[in-house]
Structure formats: C-alpha cells, structure tokens
Design a protein around this nucleic acid. Structure first.
Length: 680
RNA sequence: GGCGUGGUAGCUCAGUCGGUUAGAGCGUCGGAUUCAUAACCCGGAGGUCGGGGGUUCAAUUCCCCCCCACGCUACCA
C-alpha cells in the first residue's frame, strides 16, 4: 500500500473545455503529472481509476457555434474527438475519457441536482436578467454585446471586455445588444437556484484549514484560506440557457445547470460509464480522491465541488488537490485565442515518436511551485544534453559493449569487488527515493532522481573501463557488464511512469517483460545467458533546423497578432446637428482630486464648471496622479445623467482622448478659454 | 485596491523550524578519456539568496515597508 489507510484511488484530471485543442500548458499543469502519478500507482498494483473527459457545456461553446453557424454539438464533437485522439497518441493513460454531453452525464448531474433540491439544500432567488423579446429567451451575459464602459470597445461581452480585460456585468454595457438577434434586450425577472456556500463555511474551515494544513500545497491552501476568510456567498447553480443539463424541476424550461456545477459531476458520470462498481470509487472512505488541476481551478475543486459533495452527503471528499501553476511559452502567456501555444496534435505530427521527449521536458520544467517558461531552445537542450547524452547514451554504450563482447547474451558475473557492491547498494535506494517524491506530488524531483540512476550507470562504466580489460581480465568485464545491464533494466522500471514509450523500448532491447514497482530493487532482472534483443537508439538528437521551424512558427504568430492588435475604432454613423446640439460640453477647472479608496482606476474630482462646482468620478487614476491634475483646465460633458460609482455621485464626465492601447490623455482647451465656456 | 502564491548562480530549481566555506541539473571554461549519438567521467569559474529598514551575538531564513511576476477578486461616466 502506497498511502496507508487507502485501498483504492480515484484520480481525476481537469476536464478540458471542448472549444479548442490541447496545448503544452494543459499537459504540464495537469495531464502529464496526473499520468505519472497514475502509472506509478498501477505499477504498485493499486486499484486506481484515472478519469478524464471533455467539458462541453457553457456559453463560450454556444457562442462559437453561433459564429460558425452550426449547432453546439458540432463544435464539441469536433474538439472532443481531436482532444481524445491527441491524448491517446501522447500516452495519457486514462481509464476513460468521457464527455459531458453524454446521456449518462445528464442523468447523473440531474439526479445529483434533484437530490439536493428535494432535500432543500438550495435557496432560490428571483433576479433580473436581460431577455430577448424577439426570440423569447433569456440571454446569458456572454450573449450580450455592447460598448465597454471602460475602454469604449464596442464589441465587449456582457461578462467581460476582451479588449481591456475588464470583467463586467451585462447591465454595465452601453447600448446592450442581443448577440442572437441584434435586438435591444430588456430586463426581466428570472428565478435561479443557489448553493448557499456560506452555510458550509465552518465545515470548510475545519476540513481544509485545520485538516489539510500540512499536506496541501501552499498555493492551494493559501487560495482556499483567502476565500474562506473573505466570507463565502451563495453561488447560482442554474442559468437561462438551452445548452447544457436541463434543470430537473417542473416548469423550468429554458434553464440548465450552470457549467461549473455540472462539470465536476462529470468525473462521477465518467466513472459510472466506466464501471458498474463506480460507487466504491466515490463513496468508500478508504478511497483516496485526487484532483489534478491548474491554479485557476482551485476554488472550484477545493471549495465549491466539495461543498456540493458534502451537501449530497454520500460522497467522499478530495484527499488532495495538487494544483499546478501555469506554463508560459517563450516568455508570453499561452493563449488559445491568440494562437500562442504549442498544440499537442501539431507536436505529435512534427515530432513523431517523441512523446517522451515532451513528457520529459514538461515534467523537468513543471510549474509545480511557480509559473515556468517553455522555450524550444530549452526543449532541444534537455533532449540533447539529458535524454540523449545521459540516459540514451548509457543504455546504448552498455548494449553496444554487450553485443561486442557477448553477442548480446547477458554474461555471468564473477566475484563482486567493493565498488560493485557499493553500486548495487546505491541502486537499491532509487525506487524508494523516487516513490517518496511521487507520493507527495514532487514530479520534478522524482524525475531528476530517475536520471541520477542513469548518471550512476555512466560513472560506473567510465570508472571501471571494461573496454580496457577486455583482453586481460574477461571475468572482471563480465561482472561490470552484468551490473551495467541490470542498471538498464532498472531504468526501464523506475522510468516507466515518466517515459512509458522509452521504457517499453528498453525492455524490447533487453528482451524482458514489464515489471511491477515492488521488483524495482531486485537487481537480478537479467539472468546470465539471457539473450537481449536488437539494440537501437533510445533518443535522437534534435538539430537546430527542427527547432528553427518551431521558433519561426511562433514568430509568425507574433507578427500576425501584432498586426491585428490595437486597430483604431471604426468611424461612427453620421448624425445631424440637432444630435450634437444636445450635448453640453464645457470648460472646467479641477479644484480637488483624490483617489477613490479600494479602486485602482477611479479618481474623485471636484471641478468648477463656471455654472457650479460639482463632483465627478473618472477612471483616470492609472495614468494620472491627483496632485498633477489639480488646477488643470479641462473639458467635461456637463449634461450627462449622474451615476453612482463606489457610492460617489458622478455628475458628468471628463473628456479624454484614448489611444488604442487604452492609455488616456486630457482634452485641453487652449489658453484663454474660461470656466463654463461652451464647446461647439 | 483586497487576498493568495512566487522572486536564491546565465537558465530551471532545491534549501535554510536563524549559526561553520548557500546546493543540484543544464550552460560556460579547463582537464582526462575513447565503449558510446564529439557523448560519458573529473575539476574550475559563477550568487551582497528582489530592494530597504528592524529584531538578534548572528538573517537568505523571523518581523515591517516597498518593488516585480502570476492567479483569484473589486472597480473603471
């Protein structure tokens, strides 16, 4: 038993969203570490299931479908198959890779929701939401576009402006428009169900803050503590949308479960799909549940999903959530929309048969404690200087010498000298050390230890110089070669979780079957006289040209992105003078200025307009300091309806010129214009 | 703005419950060697441990302030 107290394992990996392919960020953060962990458990003959699947609900998929004029199902079918295939080809060894559009998932999620509903675990509230009267349906925030109140971008979504990155409420948008019909939507009442997270706060506090103080990673624990200490709020678990799991309550047509509610249940659905025995993986306290995720998912997997499971009452809770940080690419954040990524399906085509190289690089450079950077140069260096030079080279020189001296048959060892014994003792320590690191999710460390075994082999060979003794001391050579061959065999065992393809290759070269972890310190996998197989190179050098191609590809992407960036806003339609005449723009002087506390962009200003003195709130604090604006003569829009911002009544708006990058500049009247001067 | 995590050699990272010369891998320089994919093996150089204060006989390690990166979150007429 690897972890005392547990007799089986349920390992989940975050469900990738089915609106794009898999990239190295996904792999480094979630799937490679999860796969290493699972392969290690399997080698220990543990009862383990490894769950993956596509998350196919949610608004972004419906938007994408809309843009392409197809049904959401077409979108998810396309990406689900693509993702599933690339995972399989890459060797991520899921026991099942399922999807949330499956019938069994809809049933599972419905039943889960219904149970909580029947037991009164939800509260319901009526709120106001935009409604498209022409189509007769409510509009999710993502289904509304309009002008961003911050940057003026006219294609901002109701939840976020993709230009300035600001998160918004749909009601903030200027001139909101329905994406579906182009109509102006109206606000209408709608009923939704909420999970009252606040009620679970005392329990979460004890379970996480007390119970997992020592075994959860600092980033995970810290994030949880932050959320709990801030005070938890009820979270809506339903949405007005027609793509997703229908709310299983009478009279709720047009409502589905919110995607974050149904997605984690996908882990359970997938298990049900995998085995009729699914309950023991989810309801037996002797099962260890581990969620592999990225840092952006911490709150869902540590707070919300556990609260759901707790509310349901019959499920176990995650024992650990080893969330990773992010992997950057060549100094920039990976981005699907900007095509700034190394896509798995493209990698598999560009570097056929080199799954283990990427697995190695992503593990050795894994973002376990902080964001890391993937560069192609580093990829090449790790392949050439580590995989080829240290691991591949050791196996190769051993097999070449074995072929040369013994025609590939394992020689009978003679008497062991001190150095041999010492080496064998060292070898025995590796499986335990590697296992110790893997058990606490320290994959980089475990991998480095595995490579140290290859280093041990290289040093053993070099120091003993069998090639010099071939003529004079054949018995000694036999011993050296026997031990070197055993190291190769051991490498194939302890390397298996990290480099499954290469381990298989070593076994083929040595002509031995696969082993379990318990045999990793046996030291006699190869009996004298055993005939080894055909030797080949374990890894090949990757030359500059191959790397150059990849780097150029990224440079091209960068050029395209730069060319597309920051276009000037298109001209607005013509208006008549009477429209312009409605606008009252005046010269004013700033009398006082102070930053609005607890905001980063807002500044509270007192201005003299000539007619009166009034208060304005302006989003200029990122570009100007209060002391440098006081006394300035500026232009303001004076007859704008007032609006409260952070509790302060803003009576008008300062005229600012905005560059495409969002930077703001005052519009200044020339010398001589007095306060209250009318601008026309 | 609030909260969280991180900021240690050129690069990727360990580590320090405060204490002799701060470690590893890769890179770099030099040596040795030739079984091996010019690989392996040995050795050297390279760090005021993000910055500034404080506590202490002693701080990279504890405390305070600040800066930077990333995540969550608020706000941006």
């Amino acid at each position: 038993m690897i972890h005392p107290g547990f007799k089986r394992y349920t390992v989940t990996s975050a469900l990738p969203y089915a609106n794009g392919p898999i990239h190295i960020g996904h792999l480094a953060g979630v799937y490679v570490p999860a796969d290493i962990y699972v392969r290690f458990l399997r080698m220990n003959r543990e009862d383990v299931i490894f769950i993956g699947g596509s998350d196919e609900h949610g608004v972004p998929i419906t938007i994408k479908a809309l843009q392409q004029g197809v049904s959401p199902q077409v979108i998810v079918d396309r990406y689900h198959e693509m993702i599933k295939k690339s995972f399989r080809d890459f060797g991520i060894s899921f026991d099942i890779y399922s999807r949330t559009s499956n019938k069994i998932h809809h049933e599972t999620a419905s039943a889960f929701f219904r149970k909580l509903y029947d037991e009164g675990k939800f509260i319901d509230k009526v709120t106001q939401q935009f409604y498209d009267e022409k189509l007769g349906q409510f509009l999710a925030d993502r289904y509304i576009t309009g002008t961003c109140p911050h940057c003026g971008y006219d294609k901002a979504y109701g939840d976020q402006c993709e230009k300035c990155g600001t998160s918004l409420n749909a009601t903030d948008l200027i001139n909101p428009v329905s994406v579906l019909s182009g109509n102006v939507p109206v606000l209408r009442d709608t009923r939704h169900w909420f999970l009252p997270l606040n009620e679970y706060e005392p329990w979460l506090r004890e379970w996480i803050l007390e119970g997992h103080k020592d075994d959860w990673k600092p980033n995970v624990y810290g994030q949880c503590k932050s959320w709990i200490d801030l005070g938890l709020q009820p979270r809506a678990v339903t949405r007005d949308l027609d793509w997703g799991v229908k709310v299983p309550i009478e009279g709720t047509e047009g409502k589905v479960l919110y995607v974050w509610f149904d997605a984690p249940i996908g882990y359970i659905s997938a298990t049900r799909e995998l085995t009729p025995d699914w309950e023991k993986y989810w309801k037996d306290p002797e099962t260890k549940l581990v969620h592999f995720i990225g840092k952006d998912n911490i709150v869902f997997h540590c707070i919300i999903f556990p609260a759901m499971l707790k509310a349901e009452g019959t499920y176990i809770l995650p024992d650990n959530v080893p969330a990773n940080e992010f992997m950057n690419l060549e100094g920039d954040k990976i981005s699907t929309s900007r095509n700034w990524a190394v896509w798995l399906h493209e990698y598999l085509e560009s570097f056929p048969g080199k799954q283990d190289v990427l697995r190695y690089v992503l593990t050795a450079n894994g973002p376990e404690t902080k964001d890391n950077d993937f560069t192609w140069k580093d990829f090449q260096a790790k392949n050439n200087n580590e995989l080829v030079a240290i691991l591949g080279n050791f196996v190769n020189r051993t097999l070449v010498l074995t072929a040369k001296y013994y025609n590939g048959a394992v020689p009978e060892p003679g008497d062991l000298n001190a150095r041999d014994k010492e080496t064998l003792e060292e070898m025995k320590k590796f499986p335990g050390r590697i296992a110790g690191s893997l058990q606490v999710y320290r994959f980089r460390e475990a991998l480095a230890e595995m490579m140290n075994l290859a280093r041990l082999g290289n040093k053993y060979l070099t120091d003993n110089e069998p090639w010099k003794l071939a003529e004079t001391d054949p018995k000694r050579v036999a011993t050296i070669m026997n031990i070197s061959l055993q190291i190769c065999a051991q490498l194939s065992i302890v390397g298996e979780p990290f480099l499954p393809f290469s381990s298989e290759k070593i076994r083929r070269m040595l002509n031995i079957p696969s082993s379990v972890w318990a045999d990793a310190d046996k030291l006699d996998w190869l009996k004298p006289g055993h005939q080894t197989g055909k030797s080949e190179l374990l890894f090949e050098k990757i030359d500059d040209a191959a790397i150059e191609i990849q780097v150029r590809k990224l440079l091209d992407t960068k050029k395209i992105n730069e060319a597309m960036q920051a276009p000037l806003k298109p001209a607005k339609p013509l208006i008549g003078y009477e429209d312009f005449d409605k606008i009252d723009i005046r010269v004013a002087t700033i009398l006082e200025a102070e930053k609005v506390p607890k905001t980063s962009k807002l500044m509270k200003l007192k201005v003299d307009t000539g007619l009166d003195q009034r208060t304005l709130v302006a989003g200029i604090a990122e570009y100007y300091q209060p002391e440098e604006v006081v006394g300035r003569k500026i232009c303001i829009l004076a007859n704008l309806q007032s609006r409260k911002l952070k509790g302060i009544e803003s009576q008008g708006m300062i005229l600012m010129a905005e560059n495409p990058d969002g930077k703001l500049f005052f519009v200044l009247p020339s010398e001589g214009a007095g306060n209250g001067a009318d601008i026309k």
